[in-house]
Design a protein around this nucleic acid. Structure first.
Lengths: 193, 193, 193, 193
DNA sequence: GATGAATGAGTGTTCATTCAT
DNA sequence: GATGAATGAACACTCATTCAT
């Protein structure tokens, strides 16, 4: 149906893969092309520039996260359960597809991450706004702005995942259980009695 | 007094500054030299390589953090107060010297951050180990490993600072009070009654 | 016919030429590119590195010598005649294409000439082994190892060519006839009655 | 007496040493200075430039050869014996002080070896002229110009020494006796009966 | 005389992008 | 649309030489 998109997808995935293993700095267009099985010039049929490719990757990645977490959320459950599901699903996604986390890490601090990009609305951020608002409204969460709850939670997941990925051996050695961060984060956001 | 150290310092600060504004990616040696007011070759009088320069920056930055936080800690105070001091001091340091936070962000995910570097002992990590251990022993903090408490706290400060730096306008607009993250983090780590 | 090989050839010849005039020392890639009429980066389409370029030049040069001398050898002739043909052909080649001799001179004492390179089999060395062996077996040459006869002969040709190239005026002035070296070398290797 | 010459000598020897091990290409002035135990700038008190240093090395080396060979020559001996002494003394000198041979190898093909340098008279070349003239006059050597006899002999010694130095293992393996080159060279220059 | 920090042109090499085919 | 050879500015780093001390 979309034979063109096929090649575009190959390029995006190739870039994703390389960034996972080598970071932005080790991701030349020539390698992206080679891994995707296309010619260097072909990339420019689908993307205006490397910049453009990176942005598409960003939206792609954010969309994967959004779908993964939102689709696995069951609003009929108890909010605390939903929070731990949220945490575990996101955490698991980062574990299963390290390229996503790695990409975000790199993207966020790269010059690609302009104010413009940051200010864009996105289904993922909107969904989170609603999720945390619901938790507040139902009396489970602290009566703060949904945004700050989101910052707290997403910061914890990121922090945990980064640790898990970068210091795995050290963490195992010391017998540190990173899942405890979920409990701690829950304590951070839940309404204290 | 130390005219030699003077030039080395200029180079370090120049690199720091550039990384703050443009990231590692936009920090060629030629620009470091130019901004420091020295010739390109001069850098190599003081640093063996770019690698070497980056490492010195890393140790320099970590040391600043360590000194700033540890020197302002008053062990005679109540532990909760000490925690909020810790949080506020670190937070303030990141606010005053964004290049420090920016540098760490960049360094952590760069190829410079090898396992070797990660495994090095450092006064800052040791100090934190002791700090959180004390909190546990005195019954203020959850009975978890000091390391995981550190991960939780440092993750929150970083997350908050990154938000403050990148989304300042947006945050102000929405009336979000980032200091609430300190309270939330305290709830995350304190022993629940 | 082979438009690709065309450019590679231009680069090889450019390098050859520069080395002839200025030696390895005066042969930067930028100049090779300029003389070949291509951009600096283009060289790396055809050669992995300067190293690689130099090696190709080496094999190229050795092959030219091999072909030139072996193809002009007529095994049906008297061995003494064949020897003088060998000498004259090689000598003439060096005269016509000084870049070949110059290149070898440079290569042999350069860091490129590793043990690995030295130990490689080559048609040229093999052909010489057979040539001198035949001379021994047929009773024309001293009963020594073919290798040492080769060293003697090649050393003489090189020595002569170097002189001819570097001291041409002086030699002409003094009325020195370098061809006498062929006779002398024949006396050096022939079986003495 | 000559405390200044002391430092100059250190520099010359340092350069000699480095060239022996690494060739011209691995002989930066900074290293010469370091090995000589002086500051980089000090070299320029004694030598106008690297060029100048190399030239002095050249004259120094040629003088060593001249003295070594001429002083060990005993004109009262039979000429054939004198020739083999000449050969063996020069060969031994190259073996004992590889830096001399290595330097000449490098110098001869370097851009330093200008026509001007080549045309300079030198005791060494003069001595050789006389040596071979005597051989001719006494009826031992072919009735050719002394110069061409010199070219033949020096070419052989150089060729042999280069082989000995660069292909030592291979030569030993194959059981090649390089001393045979002395005999061969004698046959090359001696008057044939 | 001696020092060694400073210089800056020059080195080999990379890589985002273009364009003739 | 697809190709991949070609480009050339940019990069990290070297080194002969200078000059203030």
């Amino acid at each position: 149906m979309e034979p063109i998109a096929e090649k575009k997808k190959l390029i995006l995935e190739s870039a994703f893969d390389i960034i996972k293993d080598q970071g932005f700095h080790g991701c030349p267009m020539s390698l992206v092309a080679k891994n995707a099985g296309v010619a260097a010039g072909t990339i420019y049929t689908y993307f205006e520039s490397k910049n453009d490719l990176i942005f598409e990757l960003y939206f792609h990645a954010k969309n994967i996260i959004y779908k993964h977490v939102s689709q696995k959320d069951d609003p009929s459950l108890d909010f605390k359960t939903r929070f731990f599901n949220y945490w575990n699903n996101l955490s698991q996604l980062y574990l299963d597809r390290p390229e996503i986390q790695r990409f975000f890490e790199q993207f966020m601090i790269s010059p690609y991450n302009t104010l413009e990009v940051q200010n864009e609305d996105s289904p993922w951020y909107n969904w989170n706004g609603n999720f945390f608002k619901e938790g507040i409204d139902k009396g489970y969460l602290k009566n703060l702005s949904p945004e700050i709850l989101f910052i707290m939670v997403i910061g914890s997941v990121n922090s945990m995942s980064k640790m898990r990925q970068n210091f795995n051996t050290k963490i195992t050695e010391k017998g540190i259980d990173l899942n405890q961060l979920a409990e701690m984060t829950w304590d951070a956001i839940r309404k204290q009695k």
